[in-house]
Amino acid sequence: MFSKVKAVVMEARDMDRALTRIAHEILERNKGISDIVLIGIKSRGEVLAERLAAKIKSIEGHEVPCGALDITFYRDDTDTHQPDKAPEQTELPFDVSQKKVILVDDVLYTGRSARAAIDEIIDFGRPTAIQLAVLVDRGHREFPIHADYVGKNIPSSSKEEVLVRVKERDEKDEVVIAESEK
């Protein structure tokens, strides 16, 4: 997992500004926070969802419910993909029915993770809407999925990797482009 870093494309302050803007966009588009829930895709999407929740609270003064999904059991590549760690638990401490779900992930790439996450959310109930918020959109979509809120568009080659690092898990906040090992 030690890929060679080619460039740092977002630093901690850039990430924070992007999340602040996304928080405002979520509020503007949904006209407030009623019926909104945030759901992060584990593991880094979970951290970003919590940060968005904190930002929304500081803007509106109210908590928005925040949950996290582990999509391992919903992946479409379980035949060929070896996860490098044991799956984690999905934690949705609220009912998603009749809610506007803001799905949060670090990087939008093929769209397959978002597809798996949408399938998993639908198994829990019938939300009125699911919107997708990502810190980085790097292109190369394989499914008809688009993000409603994007922190930064980073056109990349499929030979590269775009890695989002968050201080809760990776010591510091940054987004880097790295040489793929494959």
Binding site: F73, Y74, D119
Partner: peptide, 11 residues
């Protein structure tokens, strides 16, 4: 998974 209302995943 066994505590959900839909106690099923497609794995």
């Amino acid at each position: 998974v066994s505590t959900r209302s839909v106690k099923k995943v497609p794995a």
